[in-house]
Design a protein around this nucleic acid. Structure first.
Length: 420
RNA sequence: GGGGAGGUGGCUGAGUGGCCGAAAGCACCCGCCUGCUAAGCGGGUAGGGGGUGUAAAGCUCCCUCGAGGGUUCGAAUCCCUCCCUUCCCGCCA
């Protein structure tokens, strides 16, 4: 969230940012309630201060004639505070609905058409054949099963079978190994159900409840990404500045309702209610966050390069970057079968927006007040679409799929999927 | 699921109605002292919010001893509910 203080001092900047993001922002209501809140709070505190003074006198003198006034003061302070608290609660609810501002380098635009390709690696491969889709190949090879998954769980679910399941597991292992051994991330295994406070910390709540699966009769939600438990790992903490940046990597299944995505990507292993993802998260300082964000993006790109997949890096424009993000890049891997780029990673930096919600702070130095940390995250990578890009890129004329070299050590001797 | 114990500052831990936002110790910071190190001596060190201040500093007030409510002029301390930790029993992958 943005601090009340920041909104007081920069209402127009916040309004402008919200408008360019295409998000509503109740700034006028916030400023009005802020005045009301402070009025009642001031009154309550003034009376309370008088009451505290007089109460001390009572303790000394035991003068019973003071009691009636003390009682009245207590009543007044209590009722004023109750009003102030109620207004503050309303105010806090509104604050949670104000979108983040964005960095000056973010391109201004309205839709995904306004996103900017900032770099590209490799080029579209010449397969020398009519490229087939991953779902066509996957079903023919018996490594993907959508029909039975639909019977078991419904649409947007899949079974991976045999070498398909193995390939997915190999990818997870490979990514975790690279990030932990070479990029310096600490691996985490996390809760995959989290409470509302955690969801609010990462800004999945209150705005995006309809995109989450909720456990009945409990304050628990299925995580839409490991970002949620990992970012919240240090909630309510004051971290040592010397320990920053903290770098975490976590593999977790991720669940999303995909509300509002009706009709989009209904074919294939692309937009699923449940999918695997290896997530990178950093917690750092204001001074280093932009730099760490760039590095994290490169860490994710490194996976694509090692897999030999052609990709583009998109700088998301204001209208397409989302409510909480301060700056965002999407990694788009080329999938020749479906003949388009698939989003395999989304890397974002949040400024102190999430840290303020989750109350993650650090102490810049001895005797210095704590400051809110900056949080960063990115997929490194999301599995299904990476798997798709691999299958479609490494397909052969005979319908079999070559295992990329870097995955071979993880495939138990399988170098060609489909060879029996 | 049943029963016991417990949640206090960066950490350990005292405090059972006002003298307590909180003893003592540890850790850390500043200074003194010792030829170095260790020891010793003195001082300092929780968070949030309101007001004032251009801002920082400062000054001032309010709140916070797991969370929320209650009793009281006054609550870390008494009462209720919830959450969490831990131990014993039961069940169990």
């Amino acid at each position: 969230m943005l601090s009340l203080d920041f909104i007081r001092k920069n209402p127009d900047a916040v309004r402008r940012a919200a408008q360019l993001k295409g998000e509503p922002a109740p700034i006028d209501d916030i400023l009005r309630l802020d005045g009301v809140w402070r009025g009642h709070l001031h009154k309550a505190e003034t009376v309370k201060a008088e009451q505290n003074e007089l109460s001390k006198e009572f303790a000394r003198t035991r003068d019973e004639s003071l009691k009636e006034r003390l009682r009245q003061m207590a009543d007044t302070a209590k009722s004023e505070l109750a009003v102030a608290d109620a207004v503050k609660k309303e105010l806090d609810d509104l604050l949670l609905r104000v979108p983040n501002i964005f960095h000056e380098s973010v391109p201004v635009g309205e839709t995904e058409a306004d996103n900017v390709v900032i770099r590209e690696w490799g080029s579209k491969p010449d397969l020398g054949l009519a490229a087939r889709t991953h779902y066509d190949l996957g079903e023919a090879l018996g490594i993907m099963d959508f029909e039975r998954a639909a019977r078991v769980a419904g649409s947007r679910f899949a079974f991976l079978v045999g070498d398909g399941a193995r390939l997915e597991r190999a990818l997870v292992q490979f990514m975790l190994d690279v990030h932990t051994r070479e990029h310096g991330y600490v691996e985490l295994w996390t809760p995959m159900l989290v409470n509302s406070a955690a969801m609010t910390g990462t800004a999945n709540l209150p705005k995006f409840a309809d995109q989450l699966f909720k456990v009945e009769d409990r304050d628990l939600w299925l995580i839409p990404t490991a970002e949620v438990p990992v970012t919240n790992l240090h909630r309510e903490e004051i971290l040592d500045a010397e320990r920053l940046p903290l770098k975490y990597v976590s593999y977790a299944p991720s669940w999303r309702t995909e509300a509002g995505a009706a009709g989009k990507d209904t074919r294939g292993f692309i937009r699923m209610h449940q999918f695997s993802k290896v997530e990178l998260v950093k917690v750092t300082t204001a001074e280093t966050s932009l730099d760490e964000f760039e590095k994290l993006t490169h860490d994710a790109e490194d996976i694509l390069q090692r897999l030999g997949l052609h990709y583009q890096v998109l700088a998301m424009c204001t209208g397409d970057m989302g409510f909480a993000q301060y700056k965002k890049y999407d990694l788009m891997a080329w999938a020749p079968g479906v003949d388009r780029y698939l989003e395999v990673s989304s890397c974002s930096t949040f400024n102190d927006f999430q840290a303020m919600r989750a109350n993650i702070r650090y102490r810049p130095g001895r005797g210095v007040s704590p400051k809110f940390a900056h949080t960063i995250n990115g997929s490194g990578l999301a599995l299904p679409r990476t798997l798709d890009a691999i299958i479609e890129t490494y397909q052969r004329a005979d319908g079999m799929v070559t295992v990329p070299d870097v995955l071979k050590p993880y495939m138990g001797g399988v170098e060609l999927i489909g060879a029996r």
